[in-house]
Write a protein that binds this DNA or RNA. Structure first.
Lengths: 238, 238
DNA sequence: GGCAACAATATTGTTGACACATTTGACGCC
DNA sequence: GGCGTCAAATGTGTCAACAATATTGTTGCC
């Protein structure tokens, strides 16, 4: 038996007690997870890039084990892949997988469109109807894609919230964070945004008159149309 | 500064090297996860039951940290809930959540029915058509529910495999493991299995003739019908 | 007995140290 | 220079000790 001598600190300081070290205060696992999710979804960390535990451990000021926990969460969401003893790399999407994600997205968004229509009073969609009949078209004319995407996100977010189905919401969230950059690239494809805008108006009109069945059908058509655009320009998107 | 002396072993034995201790060999995280999933899905561990890290650590012969990792995975799947410093308890399902799970299941199974029909030659469904036209009805007449459920699982499994969409497959899997016991209780509701059998035949007929659109429509009707049965007998199921 | 305060026990949460694997780089040889 | 071999460096995987918190048990008082 060997005997080793370890020096240990007399008092263990509380988590937030010493913020001075490294000039970076410690972060919670949730914050770290969220940060890395955003970086990967926004391709700030590009597909195929390697994530080093020590680097992140140093950056966030947390022990390496916590980074590993976050990696597990990212892996279960399909954002990274872990190879034993080799580390973690950002998942690289291929066209085939994107189509499969879109197939699932189609039925889930369709479901949410219907549930949302059934759950809230039709008048509550009026502001979005207005926004989509005027401003959104202007954004396209002036090439203000950021504002257009913002309006797109708003509609989507409102629909999911109104649907009130946390299961579907979570699943869609995991799809968005994986296809986020694809969505944005589809929008700037020639003519796509104009077509999509028309389709969104149709969906909103159905929701506005309380026709959930039709809203679901139109939403699915919209998703298929987006998928076709993606397929037509596959070489330019991925 | 205090100095503490720790005794450490000279050589660390490999994982499988010493199987004699406690008469229980060490298990991989995957095995443990699978075991606990099955226990919770089968209500071997009932809803609301508390899971103690040390107990499981001892049972599987692994360090407690590994049990905690498994807990994280179970939590992300919604099978358990963790309360800080209070431990983990098996999630208790309420009717509202079951309905929401069924809404998602409806669209996902519908999608898989369509994709499966599109992906494989129509003839490949013949054995299931045969099985559902003869033996399955016999199982119901003789009250052999186990065989009936087995035939039900087989159809479902084949459909998902043929659909070839791992995203949808994984989502459905997480729904099944949460509603597994509900599915089995619905089947034994008066008249439900007979109605369901008829609907499954219709779905299979559509798949057999290669009509994916119709297969999706019928599958969704089937799921709605099951949901209605569940609603009618809600007091007996949950 | 009822109950509040405290002590003891049990359980969960956190972390650094060590073990193991892979990659990198230096060296010698042909 | 090309290339196999070995050593050092780097990075990942595992775990048990320590800390913090919650739960249970005990005591003393009214």
């Amino acid at each position: 038996m060997s005997v080793k001598i370890l020096k240990l600190r007399d008092k263990s300081p509380k988590r937030g007690g010493d913020t001075s070290r490294r000039g970076k205060l410690t972060a919670t696992p949730e914050e770290i997870l969220e940060t890395l999710r955003r970086r990967i979804a926004g391709q700030e960390i590009p597909p195929g890039a390697k994530l080093r535990e020590q680097d992140l451990s140093a950056e966030f000021g947390v022990p390496r084990t916590r980074i590993r926990d976050v990696f597990s969460a990212l892996e279960s969401r399909g954002l990274i892949e872990r190879i034993p003893n080799r580390g973690a790399v950002v998942t690289r999407l291929d066209m085939e997988l994107v189509f499969k994600l879109y197939d699932v997205r189609e039925v889930l968004e369709g479901l949410c469109a219907r549930l949302a229509t059934e759950n809230v009073p039709p008048e509550s969609w009026q502001d979005l109807v207005d926004h989509y009949s005027g401003p959104m078209a202007d954004y396209l004319k002036t090439g203000d894609f950021d504002s257009y995407v913002e309006g797109y996100d708003r509609l989507r977010q409102r629909t999911i919230t109104a649907a009130g189905n946390p299961i579907a919401a979570q699943m869609l969230d995991s799809i968005y964070e994986r296809t986020n950059f694809v969505i944005r690239r589809i929008i700037i494809l020639p003519g796509r945004a104009e077509t999509g805008l028309e389709q969104h108006r149709a969906v909103l009109a159905a929701m506005r008159r309380g026709d959930g069945i039709e809203a679901e059908r139109l939403k699915r058509l919209n998703m298929r149309s987006a998928k076709e655009s993606l397929n037509r320009f596959r070489n330019y998107v991925l």
